[in-house]
Amino acid sequence: MSDLSRYFFYLFSLLTIGSALAFVTRKGPVPAALWLVNTMFALSGLYVLLDAPFVGAVQVLVYAGAIMVVFVFVVMLLNLGRAGDRPDLRGIGGQLTAGVVGAALLALLLAARRGDAVLPALVPSSTSTSNVVEPVAQLLFTDYLLAFELTSIVLLTALVGAVVLAKRRTAA
């Protein structure tokens, strides 16, 4: 890792962590959602630093673009938008559980970093190429075809379910 990318790594990491913290501490749903968008953006910067520009672009496209737009849309339609209109939706029990889970995950990461446990190489090394989509597509449609198809069936089920639920509400 060259010096320049090291600085960028720290920049994007700080942005990610800061935005994530702001996301869980904001009370209004709309500001929280916007901080989440910011988190997604900073994360995609980290992916690009990892030489995975495709994942970075898809991260913005799918999370920051599509899902967050729908999320903000729903929040606005349900008129939950304004902080102060209603008390915090999360009870004290929920906050405590979330805190404990977060601390446990952090401890796990630190332990893995400290100890001699060698993390297995999850990403197969690939040669650098000008076509960044081809390696992903190659794996997706050969080695991981079953997982890919199952995921699409899950998504299709969710889609059909959403349509059925929406239909029932208008009929009633």
Binding site: V30, L34, V37, P53, F54, G56, A57, V58, V60, L61, A64, G65, A66, V69, V72, F73, M76, G81, S130, N131, V132, V133
Partner: peptide, 25 residues
């Protein structure tokens, strides 16, 4: 000259809506 230029363009245009939605809200 990004290797993912096309996806970059789609990704950025997908966040173009935030300005209008937030202005309205």
């Amino acid at each position: 000259n990004l290797p993912v230029g096309f996806l970059f363009m789609l990704a950025i245009s997908s966040i173009g809506v935030y300005g209008l939605v937030l202005a309205g809200w």
